[in-house]
Amino acid sequence: MRSREIWLALMALLLVIVFAISTLSGRFPQPGLQSPTMILQEGIHRNILLQIRLPRVVMSLILGASLSLAGLVFQTILNNPMVEPGFLGVSQGASFGAALAILLLGGNQTMIQILAILFGMGGLFLSMLLARTLDVGHWVMRLVLAGIAISALFSSGLGMLKYYADRMERLPTLTFWLLGSTARVTWKTVLPIIPPILFAATILLVLRWRLNLLSLDDETAHSISVNVKRERTIFLICAVVVTALCISVCGLVGWVGMIIPHLCRKVFGANTRYTVPASILLGGILMMVCDDIARVLFPAEIPLGVVTAIIGASLFIPIMSSFSRSSQ
């Protein structure tokens, strides 16, 4: 019991350390870690740190924490350890909404966020609606299949948008953003999404023990006084909000939402009382590290989504094989 709290404290400490290292590392003037004294003394270094690097590190932290938190919520509610928002039309829906706002509505920040949330919800809603009409397999299987179809629909919509986008300016921006990147993040794009994300994350943190109850069969949950429909809606809305807001700024960054909650359950067990804070912390830590790799390791920046996909996919394989072993 106690040991899990100690682990959480250690992870929080690690988060602070990784945060500090991330803000101090970059490629200017030379790749690697920079000395704090130089930053304090020279204005240009201070400016780079405060205006360019810091918003980016903050965004990575928020991004990783949000995606893994949302992934955990989806996995628990659907009672399936192998799903993430990207499976259910949420991510593609949100990115379509954001792209729509960027291209057609002039890229107003608030508009991007609102459309991302609306289309993210729409994606989830459509997936659930479609899943009801399908006639194969069990509920989760149907939901995932429906999610794939709805995601494909939104992807093709995105394709259309890209086709019409201005080839010199908007298209490269859109393409890079869709690969998942924090490269163009500024305080202007990060600050507005912090309050709503904090709000939704706080609700999820406060209610985190009750997330356990939603992994039970509806019949059972009902019998222990859980208002299943209402509580599930609250959790899903919060998860979609944090996901969509992150996508509206960083585009599609995959894998994190599936892998991190899984790793957290390996260490902390299934109880969401511990896995919720653990997913937030570990997601933040890992995303900051991935972003450091994306911007520091190579002379030309690689998109963050590519880094998480490489790491995620290579972790997915051993997790999958251990999963099928344990369920034998």
Partner: peptide, 28 residues
């Protein structure tokens, strides 16, 4: 919920709860 307890025939469980954690949900 404080007056009627229900024991289902079976239950699909996908997560590694301990017996103690699982039973404690009955306190809801």
């Amino acid at each position: 919920g404080q007056r009627l307890g229900f024991v289902p025939q079976q239950e699909k469980i996908s997560f590694d709860y301990t017996v103690q954690e699982y039973v404690s949900m009955g306190r809801t």
